[in-house]
C-alpha cells in the first residue's frame, strides 16, 4: 500500500450493554481502505457488519457504545472528535447507505425536502441549485422523470426505487468514503448493474473509498479490491479479494464460498456450514467458529491470535486450511 489510507480502523470494539449481558457485536476488528478502493465486508447475518458501519459514522445508539479502538479517517480519530465535527464529516466526507430501503426515508417528508436538506446542511447554496443537484443525482441512479419524482412522498416509491433514492442521497455530496450496507439486494439485476457501474466510476474518478457490505460473494468478486470476512464480531480472514476467494484459508471463508450456489454443479446438493451462528451473549470459549468447524481440535478452545499469511493476508485461525491439506483434499474428494 503506497497511498495513505482514507480510513484506518484499528482494534475497533463496539459492545451492546443489554439486560441479558454484554453483546460484543464488534470485537477488535482491524482493516484499512485506500482512496479509490473497494472493500467487501461479508459475513453471516448478525456477524456485526452493520454495527461496524454505524461505528464508523458514530451512529451507534443506546445501549450500544464504541468501547475501544481507533477509527482514523485521514489521520483523524473519529472516536475522539467533537459531535459537531462528526456532523460536518457525515454526509459530506463519509456517507452511508442503509440496509433496509423501506425504513431509511422519512415517510412524512417529500423526497425533495430530504435531498435538499442533505445538501444545505453542509453548503450555503440556494434551494434552486440544491434542487438541481438533487435532480441530477436521481437521474444518475436511474430514476425516470426525476422532476416529478422529487415532489413525491416515499410511500409512492417501490422498495428498489427508495433504495436508489437513498443511494442518490449518499452520493449527493461526493463523499470520500461510502459505507454501503447491502445496497443492491433490493434491486433487480439490470439496476444493480447500473448502480455498480456508477459506483465504480465514482470510486475511480474521484478517489472515493467504498466499504461494500454484502452477503453476495459474486458482487464482491466483481467489485471489490479487498475482502474482510466477519464472524461473530471478528474479522476472521482478510486480504486481496482474488487471493482470498480463490484460496480461502479460514474454514469459515471456505464454508461461505462452497455454499454459494453457482460454485456447485447444477443438481448437486449445496454444501452448507453446519449449525447456527452463535448468540453473541453466549459465545463459545476460544474460537467462536470451532463448534461448527470440521477441522477444530483442542487448540481451538483458546482464542486464536491474528496471524499474517503470505500476500498481506490476515487470518484468525489455529488450523488454517493450507496447513491441513489432508483434511482439505478428503473433504473435496
Amino acid at each position: 500500500m503506497t497511498q495513505k489510507p482514507t480510513l484506518d480502523v484499528k482494534d475497533l470494539r463496539t459492545y451492546f450493554f443489554t439486560k441479558g449481558g454484554v453483546a460484543k457485536a464488534v470485537d477488535g476488528i482491524t482493516f484499512s481502505i485506500a482512496p479509490g478502493k473497494v472493500l467487501g465486508l461479508v459475513g453471516e447475518s448478525g456477524s456485526g457488519k452493520t454495527v461496524t458501519g454505524f461505528s464508523i459514522l458514530g451512529l451507534v445508539d443506546q445501549p450500544g457504545r464504541v468501547v475501544g479502538g481507533e477509527i482514523l479517517y485521514r489521520g483523524e480519530d473519529l472516536n475522539k472528535v467533537s459531535a459537531e465535527r462528526m456532523r460536518e464529516l457525515r454526509g459530506v466526507n463519509i456517507s452511508m447507505i442503509f440496509q433496509d430501503p423501506m425504513m431509511t426515508l422519512n415517510p412524512v417528508l417529500r423526497i425533495d425536502t430530504q435531498m435538499i436538506e442533505a445538501i444545505r446542511a453542509h453548503e450555503k447554496v440556494s434551494k434552486e441549485i440544491a434542487r438541481q443537484r438533487a435532480r441530477d443525482a436521481l437521474g444518475q441512479v436511474g430514476i425516470a422523470s426525476p422532476d416529478e419524482r422529487l415532489r413525491a412522498y416515499p410511500h409512492q416509491f417501490s422498495g428498489g426505487m427508495r433504495q436508489r433514492v437513498a443511494i442518490a442521497i449518499a452520493l449527493l455530496n461526493k463523499p470520500d468514503l461510502i459505507v454501503a450496507d447491502e445496497p443492491t439486494t433490493a434491486l433487480d439485476v439490470t439496476i444493480q448493474g447500473q448502480i455498480l457501474y456508477e459506483v465504480q466510476k465514482l470510486c475511480s474518478q474521484t478517489g472515493t473509498a467504498l466499504i461494500w457490505i454484502t452477503h453476495d460473494l459474486s458482487v464482491v468478486a466483481g467489485l471489490a479490491d479487498q475482502i474482510c470476512v466477519m464472524y461473530a464480531g471478528k474479522i476472521v480472514e482478510s486480504g486481496e479479494v482474488n487471493a482470498v476467494l480463490d484460496n480461502p484459508m479460514h474454514p469459515y471463508t471456505h464454508g461461505l464460498i462452497t455454499s454459494v450456489p453457482s460454485k456447485n454443479k447444477r443438481g448437486a446438493p449445496l454444501s452448507q456450514i453446519p449449525g447456527m451462528a452463535p448468540s453473541l451473549l453466549n459465545l463459545p470459549k476460544g474460537c467462536a467458529f470451532a463448534p461448527r468447524c470440521k477441522w477444530s481440535n483442542s487448540n481451538c478452545q483458546e482464542q486464536p491470535d491474528m496471524r499474517l499469511a503470505p500476500e498481506n493476508r490476515r487470518l484468525l485461525c489455529h488450523n488454517p486450511i493450507e496447513y491441513n491439506n489432508d483434511n482439505f483434499s478428503q473433504e473435496t474428494s
Partner: peptide
C-alpha cells in the same frame, strides 16, 4: 431508521 439516516446525512 430514518432518523439515523437523517443523522448520517449530517443534519
Amino acid at each position: 431508521d430514518y432518523i439515523k439516516f437523517a443523522k448520517a446525512k449530517g443534519l
